[in-house]
């Protein structure tokens, strides 16, 4: 459990997609999401599917990771398909099973929506599989920084995101430790009335909160002692570097989206 939580969905690698600038990837995904919603023809979906396949091949991610990412959405896709297939009553009847009739338009509509969902999840999981949360945080910070003018603290938000990401594994280990310690002292989360279990839970929450508050306090003192000032200009340890291939990828995506727009029916 821990291993996959600590790195998140991210799968380290050296593929082209891994080495692309996080900003380029984030912007591309946004364009592609827009394109997916614009598309309403089979040709359009075929082009999008082809593009998704090319992007996937350039990522070098084993398919089972994609499958794992898409598993939760799969039921939803099936459900949506059947809602459409059963409730849209237009066109010819393709198949009737007792009380249920599948109409042609309903099935086509259902397939469209199912494809749309699968593509959305496919492309967004490729982004998070090939980009570490920290890189994405930096990319988000840069995209949000124009909002600084409206007093939106993009840098502060990025700093807080990094701290949260940094302390998630720590907090998880701490929680496990407290669970074990309290179980050893006789706390039982599984038996007894709701009240007893809630009591046992307080014994988990109190130490967890106390420890977190202590850590937050220490970190705040340490940063203040080093003169941290949230408004100041500062340099970064990790630099995002925009290369020619990032520009090329973005241009390609924009061309693709324009083509898809023209393919609309």
């Amino acid at each position: 459990m821990f291993e996959h939580v600590i790195i998140g969905q991210y799968l380290p690698g050296r593929s082209i997609l891994h080495r692309m600038d996080a900003r380029a990837k984030l912007a591309s995904v946004f364009f592609l999401i827009a394109a997916i919603f614009l598309t309403n023809s089979w040709t359009g979906y075929a082009v999008l599917g082809g593009a998704a396949a090319v992007i996937y091949l350039s990522s070098g991610v084993p398919f089972r990771y994609i499958r794992k990412g898409m598993a939760p959405i799969f039921l939803l896709v099936l459900f949506t398909f059947f809602i459409h297939a059963l409730f849209t009553r237009e066109g010819d009847v393709l198949l009737s099973l007792g009380a249920f009739q599948f109409y042609e338009d309903g099935v086509i509509q259902g397939l469209f929506i199912a494809l749309r969902l699968l593509l959305l999840v496919f492309l967004t999981s490729l982004l998070t599989l090939t980009t570490s949360p920290i890189e994405l945080t930096d990319a988000m910070e840069q995209f949000l920084s124009p909002l600084n003018r409206f007093r939106f603290p993009a840098h502060d938000v990025a700093m807080m995101m990094s701290i949260a990401i940094r302390f998630i594994p720590t907090l998880m280990q701490e929680t496990e430790k407290i669970i074990k310690a309290q179980t050893a002292r006789g706390a039982d989360f599984s038996k007894g009335s709701l009240k007893d279990r809630a009591q046992a839970f307080v014994a988990l929450l109190v130490p967890l909160f106390v420890r977190s508050f202590k850590r937050a306090e220490d970190l705040a003192y340490a940063m203040e002692a080093r003169g941290y000032n949230s408004g100041a200009e500062r340099t970064k340890l990790r630099q995002l570097i925009w290369k020619t291939r990032d520009t090329a990828a973005c241009v390609l995506i924009v061309v693709l989206v324009a083509a898809l727009f023209l393919l609309r029916e």
Binding site: H4, V5, G8, Q9, Y10, L127, T128, T131, S132, P133, L136, T137, M140, V157, M161, A164, I165, I168
Partner: peptide, 8 residues
């Protein structure tokens, strides 16, 4: 935001 950035 960290959830959207890919942390599980």
């Amino acid at each position: 935001l960290i959830g959207l950035a890919g942390m599980p």
